[in-house]
Write a protein that binds this DNA or RNA. Structure first.
Lengths: 107, 107
DNA sequence: CAAGAAGTTCGAGATAGATCGAACAAGAGG
DNA sequence: CCTCTTGTTCGATCTATCTCGAACTTCTTG
């Protein structure tokens, strides 16, 4: 099979859900790493973000981001290409991504 | 007693905590009502926001907002004056409040 | 002072979330 | 075909969150 997963359409993106997805240090770290590098696969992203979490946990976090509409995930062989849905996010929650990514507040 | 509660200083405000505080429809509704009216007390805020929640639940949500550094709460007799810490929030998480309050994404 | 009004706190119940290891699926390479 | 690499899914566990009603604290007011 491996039909793509369900990712919300731009109109389906909901602010509380997005905020919930971002309200976790691990996911924030993943998102920032992703923003720096543009796009990446799960393993590289884990390393890049400096997280010490199991594969399954990272997979879980990436799923939360994906299902909130924050990221896009494409199949590339046995790997995945993850990227930020910048345009959709900007349309749904103007300014939010920038505020979160660019913030100097950490941890 | 009734010394004021502990509210985080501007420097203590953390992005994940703020995002967590905002990642709830009820708190988002309270915050929007608060933003419209400038400042208010708990009861009026409950009415204004159109929420159908018990006093204790609203008290809980306002506590989460307060402890995240999003709102300020002052004692006024037996009532409370709640307001948004706009400056501190803008300093700690630039653009975030505006992105969240001004968003056209609902529910 | 007695009543009432405004909130808080506590304890309980239910639901959601984070994390892991083990088992699984599927492409890539020899 | 066998094995390695990448991720996903499942089940379990632990912790946090939402919600309420009941009891309490403090002011305010008759």
């Amino acid at each position: 099979m491996h039909e793509e997963w369900h990712e919300p359409t731009r109109e389906e993106i909901s602010l509380p859900t997005v905020l919930g997805a971002l309200a976790d240090p691990a996911r924030l770290a993943l998102l920032r790493a992703l923003h720096e590098v543009g796009e990446s696969n799960c393993g590289a992203l884990t390393t890049l973000s400096g997280l010490d979490l199991s594969k399954s946990t990272v997979s879980h976090h990436l799923r939360v981001l994906r299902e909130a509409g924050v990221t896009r995930t494409e199949f590339v062989g046995t790997s995945r290409r993850v990227s930020i849905r910048q345009d959709d996010l900007e349309a749904a929650c103007p300014g939010l991504l920038h505020a979160v990514i660019g913030s100097h507040v950490h941890a």
